[in-house]
Amino acid sequence: MADLSLSSVPAASASFREALGAPFRSGALFHGKVRIALLLLVPILLLTVFAPLLPIQKPLETNLRAMMELPSIQHPFGTDKMGRDILSRTLAGVQISMLVGASVAAIALVSGMVLGTLAGFYGGKVDRVIMTIVDIFLAFPSLLLAIGLVSVMGTGLIPVILAISLADVPRFIRLQRSQVLSLRSRAFIDAARTVDASQFWLMSRHIVPNTLAPMLVAASIAAANAILIEASLSFLGLGIMPPSPSLGNIVRDGQMYLEQAWWISTLPGVVILLITIGLHFLSDGVRELLDPRARR
């Protein structure tokens, strides 16, 4: 009899969740990895958004009387050699990182879905042309490709976003194409073809909605990578140019004084780490929520 009472408990809590509505029904907020991700990302995002309201120096404001000061109440992350507040600069850097991450993910998602769908759905010549170009791009490591493109296009925010996107788009095309190929042979596509549905109808109603979930997961990983690549480029002096703060160039600035003032490089570095870990947990959690096989 013991097992009978045991088995009724999950059934009851399931109906409880059913009643609470969609996000609760899918259990998204109860999922462990998603919760860790939100705990990491939400505070950073809130601080970034409300940075202008915080009682700290402006990112570009110098204070020569407080150079290279240790973290304190007034300067929670300390100051650099020109007396600028590291926390304020870091938050401004996060803002740029987030912008880069979001735009890269959006560009890669949209162009990857369009080109990948066309390649997978039409096959033949269209597929061969698109995939040959994709293969050429995929032959380069993405950081190297981004460095090359930035050195051609010049530095600054827009070139950095474009360079990183261009390195990511081929991967998205490939992923989308493989999904389209497996969907194309499913019976519901045939079912729609028997009523003479147009090709646009097939792609927009049947194929794209079914590829969206894995593409969103890929996009969140791409966002995390883009943040890392932007930081790397800025660190190498190829990305966002000083005095505009970016996580990468703050770390670069502090690198020379690592022995006297460890906080200049280290604290923004930790922030990069937390954001990346957060985004990876988020994409992992989302993937598990969307794929019932990964749930146990």
Binding site: R186, A187, F188, D190, A191, A192, T194, V195, D196, A197, S198, W201, R205, H206, P209, N210
Partner: peptide, 29 residues
């Protein structure tokens, strides 16, 4: 000519409701 497929699990778009599935031929036409 219309068709009833073998495997009812794969002959429907999982993202569409039953109503939308039955309605689709009418919308397309």
């Amino acid at each position: 000519a219309q068709m009833v497929f073998q495997d009812p699990a794969s002959s429907f778009n999982p993202k569409m409701t039953i109503g939308a599935i039955v309605e689709e031929p009418l919308v397309v036409k």
